[in-house]
Amino acid sequence: MSSVTTADPAAGSTATTTAKVEIRAVHKNFGPLHVLRGIDLDVRAGEVTVVLGPSGSGKSTLLRTINHLEKVDSGTVSVDGTLVGYRRSGNKLYELRERDVLKQRTRIGFVFQNFHLFPHLTVLDNIVEAPVSALKRPRKEAEAAARKLLERVGLADKAESYPKQLSGGQQQRVAIARALALEPGLLLFDEPTSALDPELVGEVLDVIKDLAASGTTMIVVTHEIGFAREVADTVVFMDEGRIVEQGPPAEVLDSPRHERTRAFLSKVL
């Protein structure tokens, strides 16, 4: 994909410290629906984890618990050794105030399936909003950084456009730049290419691959098996709220141990 500039050390990998993620015995219910049934997962700093699984298996919910968009019913999530959404004191977990949760989220980037760009703001304002309001960066500085990020995702000329004027692939690249603007140590992607026309998938995956190479910790929910094979350090297969198996892509994708994994792979491949 020619439209994406490759990692340029100046504009590229910022001085981000990458984070590890530890998920312990996480359960989540939606009313009678037991969506997460005891999830344990470790993601080492700088690694790329791809989560696969049938629709409704709880992948999005798991991803959303990691930045506390969804509260867990039991279990813990910690990012870089810090509990997400709670403070531990002795045997008690104190819920954090919203303000503190918001602060924690600035360390975690989230990219949505449907982009969720702010439609009334220009591309540049979309990217600059969080650094200015959440991190109190001077606007000038944030804008300069945003322009570099736009260059990095191949959209340097779109800074003044509104999201509606861009293609789906371009919008998702802006959304990625917006998440990167906070220089997060962890990036979460929830099916970042599922809402895109097939010919636009490549440009977004290329940006994500570029990021993976720069060493940011990433958890990516996707159905793009080729991408998983190429980029993932670990592939996790989920079904019915549980992690069925996990391991290096060669193992999970080419010689899955579980029948359910095999059945799923035979459908998406």
Binding site: L69, K103, H116, E129, R178, A179
Partner: peptide, 13 residues
């Protein structure tokens, strides 16, 4: 989704 995006970016309430 707009509120979720804003919340995920840590933008103050």
């Amino acid at each position: 989704g707009q509120l979720e995006a804003a919340a995920s970016l840590g933008i103050p309430r």
